[in-house]
Amino acid sequence: MIPGSFDYHRPKTVDEAVALLGQYGEEARAIAGGHSLIPMMKLRLAAPEHLIDLGKIEALRGISRDGDTIVIGATTTQAELIASPVIASNLPILIETAMLIADPQIRYVGTVGGNVANGDPGNDMPALMQCLGADYVLKGASGERSVAARDFYEAAYFTALEDGELLTSIRIPLPPAGCGWAYEKLKRKVGDYATAAAAVMLKLHGGACSFASIALTNVGDTPLLAAEAAEALVGSSLDKSAIDAAVAAAEAITNPASDGRGPAEYRTRMAGVMLRRAIARAKNRAA
């Protein structure tokens, strides 16, 4: 498993990186942690002629709070996310999710930006970002734009990111105060992609659900925002019938592949089971 040859670039600024991406167009790939791209290159399923290493661009790193928004630099690693007090106090669901990604070594180098940007439906962060209503900041030769996570994913490995564009940061609005949260993932072992997973944010007000957001991982060729499922919860007391309705609505939008994790029917059902469990845990956590 040996990758093909390429030229290596190590820009120090975002502008430099964007310029290189613009210059080489589809022959170039940006690399951060590399744990998605390098295996593809070793299998020769990807053969970029130019590799643009984002590792030395300080501006792409770090976690901060900007008013009611949490900003995560694209090359922030999962390990940095897990260790961040800002995330712990504002968006603990990110830590719960990151802990379920891959294994310790990969979390040291795997980046949040890479996880959301490469379009692999197996990745966990995209559905979570949809659930949280995050925006992705993309920078290209013609300037910067923002694309909602909910609009970003087109098909497996196809996203709104254009050739020459770079994901620079992820902006996550603070969830409503008192929100309960949970990310439930069924997998075969540590390091596996989800058989199915569900991200849930919900808020209770006077015993009724006043806000809910739900998204699903790896049960379609993109992450799936389960808007109808969330709607089924809002206004309810999270009683059995409301949850049943949410689960049915969520299962209805899945279209998983049959693979070693199980046939499509199983994975659809597991999306429902994960959702049911995530709702239960989120409910317990809601203030």
């Binding site: 590399g34 070594q105 180098v109």
Partner: peptide, 9 residues
Amino acid sequence: KSVKSCTMF
């Protein structure tokens, strides 16, 4: 950091 060096240039 612990890194898997088969997946790093």
